[in-house]
Design a binder for these strands. Structure first.
Ligand code: SF4
Ligand code: SF4
Lengths: 164, 164
DNA sequence: CTTATTGCGGACATTCAATATCTTTAATGA
DNA sequence: TCATTAAAGATATTGAATGTCCGCAATAAG
C-alpha cells in the first residue's frame, strides 16, 4: 500500500514542464539533473507519461519533452495512474466461494459489501486527485515559493530548454 | 499501490467473529478452513489484529479468537491499518532539496503542495473506511444474503465455536 | 497430574514486484 | 554526415510480500 516514488518524480517533472514557455522542450537529462535522480530510471517514468498521452517526446538534438495538453487539462489522477496503473487498490479474490456451506450450484450475486466499501474508499481517493490540475499546482507554487527561487529555477531551466 | 490480500482475509474473519454469540470463540483452524486459505499465514493476520486490540485470543483446547470490542465500535479503517500499518500511501522523499538552484542555507517551509494534495486524497480514503463499522457490514450481509446460506454458515460455525 | 490443543513469536524459505542499469535502434537538427 | 536524443527492450539487483515451520507457554479436558 505504498505509491512508487516514480509518482513523486512524475508530478515534479510535469510541474516543471507546465512552467515552460509554450512549445519549449526539456530533456530527460536536464530533468534528472534538476531532481538528482538516476536518468535511465526517470526515463521510464517519462515514457509512461508519454504513452498515456500526457507529454510528448521529440527526438534528436534539442529534443526533449513537453506537455501534450494545457496544464489545466491534466489532473493529478492522470499522472498517478500513468505510473501506477488503473487497478483498484483492493483486489477481490472471491474467497467467499471457498465457504464449505456454499453449494456448488448456488449463485452469488456480484461483489459483496466488503469489496463495495473498499472500492468506495478508492473512489474517494481518486476524486480528490481528479479535482486537482497541474495548473492549480503551478498557481499554488507561484504563490508560496520565494521569488528568488522561482527566478533561479526558471533561469536554470531556460538555459537548458530548446525548440519551439 | 495494492493492498495485501491479508486485508480481505481479516475483514472476512472479523465479519464472522461479529456474527458469533457473545463470548463464543472460534479457532484459527476453523477460520482458515472456512475461507480456504493457509492456516499458518492467516495466523499472522489474526495476530496483527490481536496486537491492535481488535480481537482477543485464548489459549488451550476450545481456545480461539473473539472480538475485543462491540462490532459497532470496530471500523474498516482499524482492521485495514492493523494489517497494512498506518503509513500514508504517498511518501515524500524531499527531492526538491536536490534542485541545483537551491542555496545551502535556504529554508524550505514544510511539505509542498504536491505532498499536501496526495495526503488529502489519502485522508479522503481513510474517512470512508472510518465511517464503516463491522456492525454496518453485518447488517448489510444479513439483508443481502439468502437465508439458507446464513443459516448454514451459522450452523457450520456454531459446531466449531466454543467457550463463553 | 497428564495430555492434547491452541495462540504466540520468531526464524526461515520462496516468490514476485519494484528498482536500477544497460544496449540497441530510430529519429532529428546542426 | 554526425552528434544528440527519446523509444524500447533485455537484464541485473534489491526488497517486500507471501507462505511455512518450529518451539514455547497457556489452558482445558480426561
Ligand atoms: S471481498 Fe467480498 S467479493 Fe471480494 S473476495 Fe471477499 S467475499 Fe468475494
Ligand atoms: S512532494 Fe513536495 S514535499 Fe514531497 S518530496 Fe516532492 S517536493 Fe518535497
Amino acid at each position: 500500500m505504498q505509491l512508487r516514488n516514480q509518482v513523486e518524480w512524475a508530478l515534479h517533472c510535469c510541474s516543471i514542464l507546465a512552467g515552460l514557455p509554450p512549445g519549449q522542450r526539456l530533456s530527460t537529462k536536464a530533468l534528472a539533473e534538476f531532481h538528482g535522480v538516476p536518468k535511465p530510471y526517470l526515463s521510464k517514468a517519462l515514457q509512461s507519461l508519454a504513452q498515456a498521452g500526457l507529454i510528448e517526446g521529440t527526438l534528436g538534438p534539442s529534443g526533449g519533452y513537453r506537455l501534450a495538453r494545457p496544464a489545466a487539462e491534466i489532473s493529478f489522477l492522470e499522472i498517478t495512474e500513468a505510473i501506477e496503473g488503473r487497478a483498484r487498490s483492493f483486489a477481490c479474490t472471491e474467497i467467499r466461494r471457498n465457504a464449505p456451506c456454499l453449494r456448488a450450484d448456488e449463485q452469488i450475486s456480484g461483489p459483496c459489501q466488503v469489496a463495495r466499501v473498499m472500492w468506495q474508499a478508492d473512489e474517494a481517493w481518486r476524486a480528490v486527485l481528479r479535482s486537482q490540475s497541474l495548473a492549480d499546482l503551478s498557481a499554488t507554487l507561484e504563490a508560496e515559493l520565494p521569488e528568488r527561487l522561482l527566478a533561479d529555477a526558471e533561469a536554470w531551466v531556460g538555459a537548458r530548454s530548446a525548440g519551439g
